[in-house]
Nucleic acid binder design. Structure first.
Lengths: 151, 151
DNA sequence: TTCGTTGCAAATGCTTTGCATCCAC
DNA sequence: GTGGATGCAAAGCATTTGCAACGAA
């Protein structure tokens, strides 16, 4: 690791890992930092790899997958399949994960989860299904594409 | 093709293809028949390939993918990514496609789409997003696993 | 010191593609 | 007859895995 990592408050990242019961390694810190930096955006493993490689050239692709997998099963990170074949990742806790995907521009919009939490509760009551993660993916055309295109 | 295909009313399958503006080939008929036979179950391309191969040994895997892809873009078939990396297919029109996936037994349950259609309408009103397909995937633990296991 | 973690490279699994042949229309 | 559909085999891409070296606790 270089001193680069020190540019962000490492203590916070460290705390995230420790509280999940995970060992703290430079690689894991970097992955968490990159995900933090992405905010509400959804990164693919390749996205993470690219960003992380800029700061740490030796970083290996399989390590990205292993770290993302570990973080996912620890609940630190949420994984989504947004319709396509590639997985997307984002830090858990950035709200509930609902997505609007525009079939034209492929852009992913986030949808506020408030009214959807209510949905989860209703489902649980009716089906006895202990609702964990609710992932809503809505395909359609965004306002911009609708006004710009023929539709 | 063998006479096997005649065991099911081919005319209905033919109509499905024709009304979608597609050429009628034995392979396409078989794929549609297999999906019809699956009812509400969600088949992977491999599932379709296996079933179809039993009736038509020459059937090629890539043809399965091509036919499923074609049927999907024609709206005859719906494709889902149920959390994992493999795509699942089912005939469109068997209701709206919402799924409850049990994290324990991996079983997929169908969820009635009535209250979710309402959701789509609300989203459209608020965001200007022309809602097309709403795909809800809810992870959790089914009633059976909850009573049987430690939870 | 010890066991988990990483790098490397090869393998895996699902899916796609190029091309020649074939067949629905 | 003609353009689209299929079979075959090989490639493509995201992801996983085995193993040896390495490093956090």
């Amino acid at each position: 690791m270089t001193e680069q990592a020190a540019r962000r408050p490492a203590t916070q990242v460290t705390a995230v890992l420790r509280s999940a019961g995970l060992r703290v390694t430079p690689q894991r810190q970097l992955v968490v930092e990159v995900l933090q930096g992405a905010g509400a955006r959804h990164l693919t493993a390749e996205d993470v790899y690219r960003e992380v490689s800029e700061r740490y050239p030796g970083f290996n692709r399989s390590t990205v997958y292993r770290v993302l997998d570990l973080l996912t099963s620890s609940g630190v990170v949420s994984q989504h399949r947004l319709g396509g074949s590639v997985a997307h990742f984002e830090l858990t806790g950035a709200g509930v994960h609902h997505h609007l995907i525009c079939v034209d521009c492929q852009h992913v919009f986030d949808l506020d989860g408030a009214e959807l939490r209510e949905l989860g509760r209703r489902v649980q009551r009716r089906t006895g299904f202990a609702v964990g993660q609710v992932a809503v993916t809505i395909e359609g055309r965004c306002a911009a594409c609708r006004s710009g295109a023929s539709g």
